[in-house]
């Protein structure tokens, strides 16, 4: 057998490795066999974690929802205070707070809390999803632009109005989409 040159040896090794790779891929079972199942498990785990989180949040805030449904928004707000002792700054708590405050006539506070919640978690803007508040935020922005903007335009030096209008624009920008 003719002795291979240095380049020839390398070419042979390259050919063998490539052939081996192709053969492995062609003969591999669908999904990569048992060793590859960990990747599939990851997808399952992610979905499980998502659903578990949704269920946990629903259960955690169920008393608040019940009080709101019973037409007792202030007590729902107090219940949120109680829950905030254990879960301060939770974005879903902020969204509920925003909704109650809007119901009680505090538009500026509602805008602030929605904006704060969205900064922490963008899922409230998703069209689909367990916590979607897209419609509510759109309506809030429309109301904010209709009521707060004229006030700000007639008092352009007012810092508090400027800050609230800036939050309305933030929500409007998030609603408009684009990259996050």
């Amino acid at each position: 057998m003719a002795k291979l040159s240095c380049a020839g040896r390398l070419k042979l090794l390259l050919f063998l490795a490539t052939t081996g790779l192709v053969a492995l891929l062609v003969t591999a079972p669908n999904g990569g066999g048992t060793a590859g199942s960990s990747a599939l498990d990851k997808a399952m785990e992610r979905e499980l974690a998502r659903q578990a989180r949704a269920a946990f949040v629903r259960e955690l805030y169920a008393p608040v929802t019940e009080l709101r449904d019973a037409g007792r928004p202030q007590q729902a707000l107090l219940k949120l205070e109680e829950l905030a002792r254990a879960y301060p700054g939770d974005p879903f708590g902020l969204v509920l707070r925003a909704e109650i405050l809007r119901e009680l006539g505090r538009l500026d506070q509602a805008i602030g809390h929605y904006a704060q919640a969205l900064r922490l978690n963008g899922e409230f803007l998703d069209e689909q999803g367990p916590f979607s508040r897209r419609t509510e935020i759109r309506l809030l922005v429309e109301e904010g632009l209709a009521t707060l903007l004229p006030r700000f335009q007639s008092h352009p030096d007012n810092r508090s109005l400027a800050a609230t209008v800036k939050e309305v624009y933030y929500l409007q920008s998030r609603l408009a989409g684009g990259c996050e």
Binding site: Y169, S173, A176, G177, G178, C179
Partner: peptide, 9 residues
């Protein structure tokens, strides 16, 4: 200037 998607001021 305001409410544009994926933009800040």
């Amino acid at each position: 200037f305001y409410g544009q998607p994926g933009a800040h001021t």
